[in-house]
Design a protein around this nucleic acid. Structure first.
Length: 495
RNA sequence: CGGGAUGUAGCUCAGUCCGGUUAGAGUACACGUCUGGGGGGCGUGGGGCCGGCAGUUCGAAUCUGCCCAUCCCGACCA
């Protein structure tokens, strides 16, 4: 790659900047199938770290993993009326099970003889197939709760797609739990929302607002949907994860009952919750800059990249010896280290490349440093570097530096969100705020009706992201209708 | 599904209006060489069914028709 290979800046064209990061940082690329993407090894490595951390958190909260089929009988989808309403328009349908050679000799065609009696839907989510299964698993209160998660792919036939943010097929996890009481199910749905929020903030360093969705925005088939909402650098909101209290809707649709301690039959209470590869988009759009990706150390496949500098083979040998020694001690301290000793690339090229890929810390070591007992330490998030002594506790120095980076990018993102969260009280303020370069989060009163919500969306393009959980009661007037309101809700333009 | 555009090297594109040498550039790739502490310089080389089919013509990347594909804007998108 040549000098001209700079990213489009965020100011110039934000969505172009995003697309270029995804491609040039080797995260993913478009596939031959419209709307689908290939997640490349570097991008997948980040996703794997997300999976591992989340999976541990799920296990710690008592969940186990299982796997349910990709295909769902068409009839299942129509058993819960709201649910089918929500998904019908974006389902891929399997109608046949066989191909045959084209009689005209041009490749293969669908064999019309092989039509399925009942068509199969490629899962857009798995509530239906799971609840039809739970029916057989549950007879007594002693069978409850069921706390199951699955890691899977799902398909939603989207017309407009964007890498990681909205693709026709995506990877996610979906937790599906069954409980004896309403209280327990509600508690579960909030517990998992908290797990998501903790993951977002501690591991991804993405600050999020926890809240409940309005009726209009909630999951089809849920009584309550809870969400974590992040604010991206362009001032638009991104829904990062959702947790649903499903009530008894699916239990009734699939006739899942249990005998309570008094031997009375009751419908089971349900939750479901999920996060997807969309989190990759949140990660990119929260921290990255015009030089490329910025990764939190907790998720970076390589936390430290080491680049040797040398001219002659003798120099190379000396530098590599010292570098391996340092790498060994860093690895022993639990740090993920990559030595980039590729002799076909130049040092400057590697600097730019690893910056683009967001590696939190870069160490460069050359003959000059070797003489002085020093090493160059560069920090990705602040783009600063300094030459420091190689001390006995160098591994601890780096460990602390990584912690600082993790903390630093979170604080920076939090400050950005705070700077771009505004209370507005009039419709003029509301619409004016949305015209800004960074529209941001708007806290405003709302009269609680779907009609008003729709009008606000149609006239301003902003939607209610959530009714924040930590919001305080406050008397006010709806920013649109002027009717009384008890609390502010969070509005934003959203992805 | 409506509106607009584009298909030429792995990628980004010029050439098409006005038909006429062997179809070009940048980048990527390969080799050599000088290099090497922020995406290096020089040299050499490989790589093309010009989206497909059918016309017009002595001659088509270029003109005509049809088809296919993709992209953008809208509509739609818990």
């Amino acid at each position: 790659m040549a000098k001209g290979n700079k990213l489009t800046s965020r100011a110039e064209n934000y969505s172009e900047w995003y697309n270029e990061i995804v491609k040039k940082a080797d995260l993913a690329e478009n596939s031959e199938v419209r709307g689908c993407m290939v997640i490349k090894p570097y991008g997948y490595a980040i996703w794997e770290r997300m999976q591992r951390t989340l999976d541990d958190m799920f296990k710690e909260t008592g969940h186990v993993n299982a796997y349910f089929p990709l295909f769902i009988p068409k009839s299942f989808l129509s058993k819960e009326a709201d649910h089918v309403e929500g998904f019908a328009k974006e389902c891929a349908v399997v109608t046949h099970y066989r191909l045959k050679n084209d009689p005209d000799g041009k490749g293969v065609v669908v064999d019309p003889e092989a039509k399925l009696e009942e068509e199969l839907i490629v899962r857009p989510t798995s509530e239906t197939i799971i609840w039809s299964t739970y029916r057989n698993w549950i007879q007594s209160y002693r069978d409850l709760p069921i706390l199951v998660n699955q890691w899977a792919n799902v398909v939603r036939w989207e017309l407009r797609t964007r890498m990681f943010l909205r693709t026709a097929e995506f990877l996610w996890q979906e937790g599906h739990t069954a409980h004896a009481t309403k209280e327990e199910a509600v508690e579960e749905s909030i517990k998992m929302l908290n797990v998501y929020a903790e993951f977002a903030e501690k591991t991804m360093a993405v600050p999020v607002v926890k809240g409940a969705k309005s009726e209009r925005e909630r999951f089809a088939g849920a009584l309550d949907t809870y969400t974590i909402e992040g604010l991206m650098q362009d001032g638009k909101a991104l829904q990062c994860g959702t947790s649903h209290f499903l009530g008894q809707n699916f239990a009734k649709a699939f006739d899942v009952k249990f005998a309570n301690q008094n031997n009375q039959e009751e419908y089971v209470w349900a939750t479901s919750w999920g996060v997807s590869t969309r989190l990759m988009g949140a990660l990119i759009m929260t921290h990255s800059d015009d030089s490329g990706l910025v990764l939190p150390p907790a998720l970076a496949p390589h936390q430290v990249v080491m680049i040797p500098i040398y001219r002659k083979d003798e120099e190379r040998a000396l530098v590599m010896e010292k570098m391996n020694e340092i790498a060994t001690s860093l690895k022993a301290a639990g740090i993920r280290v990559k030595i980039d000793d590729d002799d076909t690339k130049r040092a400057g090229w590697k600097f730019a490349e690893w910056e683009l890929k967001g590696v939190p810390v870069r160490l460069a070591l050359g003959p000059r440093d070797l003489e002085n007992g020093k090493i160059e330490v560069a920090r990705r998030d602040t783009q600063t570097k300094e030459v420091v002594d190689i001390t006995d506790h160098f591994d601890q120095t780096i460990k602390e530096l990584l912690d600082n980076v993790q903390e630093g990018i979170y604080e920076k993102a939090l400050k950005f969100r705070e700077d771009n969260t505004r209370k507005v009280d009039t419709w003029e303020e509301f619409t004016a705020a949305l015209e800004d370069d960074i529209p941001g989060f708007l806290l405003a009163h709302w009269d609680g009706t779907t009609e008003t919500e729709e009008k606000i969306q149609n006239e301003s393009k902003a939607t209610i992201r959530c009714i924040p959980m930590d919001g305080e009661e406050e008397d006010g007037k709806c920013v649109y209708s002027g009717k009384p309101s008890k609390r502010r809700v969070l509005f934003a333009k959203a992805y």
